[in-house]
């Protein structure tokens, strides 16, 4: 019973956060103000972090807040400033063929929804699942996933060096 009540709370939490995230996402792709879009994106990303907590992934949630909301969003805002976007509303943000996106997204969603519902239907997430802790994640990173980790360091190095060369004035 206790577990069931807890799940009700989680379900309500999920619903509220999801609605916020969907609204935020829709605003990101529809708003006429670049800075607003960035702020709405913060809403979506925070919502995602909250969902991660619901999914018992607190380390990823923390990383999400640090990397995305902390670093990536700052990058976006810098990008917006450096390219001198107007702080107010702009008309010219959408393509003339923007409506093309609606059927594409619609068909895509139909395919995904059919597949997801038909395969997972009303399957319950395990309520007393084995919780994955930080040590276990670190064991994985420094165990079986060591090589991709090593590779990632080169990816980031390459991205930094290349980005500097491309972005600097010369």
């Amino acid at each position: 019973m206790i577990a069931a009540e807890l799940l009700v709370a989680q379900n309500i939490g999920f619903a509220v956060i999801s609605v916020l995230m969907v609204i935020g996402a829709l605003r990101v792709v529809t708003t006429r103000n670049v800075v607003h879009a960035a702020l709405w994106l913060v809403v979506v990303l925070s919502g995602a972090a909250a969902q991660y907590v619901l999914l018992a992934a607190e380390f990823v949630a923390v990383t999400q807040v640090l990397v995305y909301i902390g670093a990536v969003m700052v990058l976006f805002l810098f990008g917006t400033m450096l390219t001198r976007a107007r702080i107010g509303t702009e008309r010219d943000l959408n393509n003339s063929y923007a409506r093309l996106g609606i059927p594409v997204a619609g068909v895509l969603f139909a395919a995904m929804a059919i597949a997801l519902v038909s395969s997972f239907g009303d399957e319950q997430l395990p309520s007393a699942a084995r919780v994955v802790g930080v040590p276990e994640i670190s064991d994985q990173i420094f165990g079986p996933y060591l090589l991709p980790f090593w590779a990632l360091s080169f990816v980031l190095l390459a991205a930094i060096i290349g980005a500097i060369v491309l972005a600097r004035k010369d």
Partner: peptide, 30 residues
């Protein structure tokens, strides 16, 4: 209970350095 770890004791993965030698040479080279 979130923070309770269920991981086993970590052991360093054994790495076959010969198998990785091409990658290592390239990494050193770059």
């Amino acid at each position: 209970s979130f923070l309770v770890s269920s991981a086993a004791v970590w052991t360093a993965p054994s790495v076959d350095y010969h198998a990785l030698a091409p990658e290592i040479v390239l990494a050193v080279g770059l």
